[in-house]
Deep mutational scan, measured.
Amino acid sequence: MADEEKLPPGWEKRMSRSSGRVYYFNHITNASQWERPSGN
């Protein structure tokens, strides 16, 4: 997916099972956040 290609290394887009909202998860640091991480 083009959107995921633009995410910084380690980040992936996921869907919250409880709320149905999109969030972002970093599998390197195990961090998660609602806001899209910047690629800069």
Rank of each mutant, 00 (worst) to 15 (best):
I28Y: 03
E5N: 07
N30L: 07
E35H: 12
S18L: 08
V22L: 06
S18Y: 04
R21M: 05
M1S: 13
P8G: 05
R17T: 15
H27V: 14
A2H: 04
Y23T: 05
M1Y: 15
E5F: 08
W34K: 14
D3V: 13
F25W: 06
H27Q: 14
S18W: 07
E12R: 03
N40V: 15
G10P: 13
F25A: 05
N40A: 15
E4V: 08
P37W: 00
V22Q: 10
S18G: 07
R21A: 12
I28A: 15
R21S: 11
A2S: 12
P9Q: 09
W11P: 01
T29I: 04
S19P: 04
G39L: 10
N40T: 14
L7G: 00
S18R: 09
Q33R: 05
R14C: 00
A31W: 09
T29Q: 07
E12K: 02
W34L: 11
R36K: 14
D3Q: 11
R14T: 04
E4Q: 12
P9K: 09
N30G: 12
T29D: 07
E4D: 08
S16M: 07
I28Q: 15
D3N: 09
R17K: 15
N26H: 05
W34N: 15
S38C: 14
F25G: 02
E35D: 14
V22E: 14
W34M: 08
K13I: 09
W11G: 01
Y24Q: 02
K6V: 13
E12S: 08
E35V: 08
L7E: 00
K13T: 13
G10W: 06
S18T: 13
S38W: 11
N30C: 06
E5W: 07
S19G: 13
L7A: 03
R36M: 10
K6E: 10
P37E: 01
P8I: 04
D3S: 14
S19N: 14
G10M: 02
N30P: 01
R14V: 04
P8Q: 04
S38V: 12
F25S: 02
S18P: 13
R36N: 04
K6F: 09
H27K: 12
E4W: 05
P37I: 00
N26P: 01
Y23E: 10
R36V: 11
A2M: 15
L7T: 00
I28K: 15
S38A: 14
G20M: 03
H27A: 14
S32T: 13
P8E: 05
E5D: 10
P37M: 00
P37T: 00
R36A: 13
W11K: 01
L7K: 00
M1L: 07
K6P: 08
A2Y: 04
E35F: 03
R17G: 09
Q33C: 15
P8M: 07
Y24K: 02
S38K: 11
M1C: 12
Y23P: 01
R17P: 15
S38P: 03
P8R: 01
S16W: 05
R36I: 07
N30F: 02
Q33A: 08
E5R: 08
S32K: 12
E4M: 10
S18M: 06
R36E: 10
S38H: 03
S18Q: 10
E12M: 06
K13M: 10
R14G: 01
A2Q: 10
K6W: 06
M15Q: 12
G39T: 15
S38F: 08
P9D: 10
M1K: 13
E35K: 14
K13W: 04
I28C: 11
N26Q: 02
D3W: 04
P9I: 06
E4K: 14
T29E: 05
K6A: 14
N30I: 00
Y23M: 08
G20R: 07
E4F: 06
P37V: 01
M1F: 15
E4A: 06
W34T: 14
T29S: 06
E35L: 08
E4P: 09
V22S: 07
R21P: 05
R17W: 05
R17Q: 10
S38R: 13
Q33L: 02
Y23S: 04
Q33H: 04
A31S: 13
A2E: 09
I28E: 14
R17M: 07
R21V: 08
S16N: 15
A31C: 12
D3T: 15
Q33T: 15
S38M: 13
Y24W: 07
R14N: 03
S38I: 05
G39E: 15
W34P: 10
A31D: 04
K13N: 03
Y23W: 06
E5K: 10
M1H: 06
R36L: 11
Y23L: 03
S19E: 13
A31L: 14
R36F: 10
D3L: 13
R17A: 12
A31K: 12
E35C: 07
N40H: 13
W11M: 00
G20I: 02
A2P: 04
A31G: 09
G20E: 08
R14E: 02
D3E: 13
K13L: 09
W34S: 12
W11T: 01
P9V: 05
G10T: 02
E12P: 00
N30R: 11
K13F: 07
E5T: 10
L7Y: 01
Y23V: 05
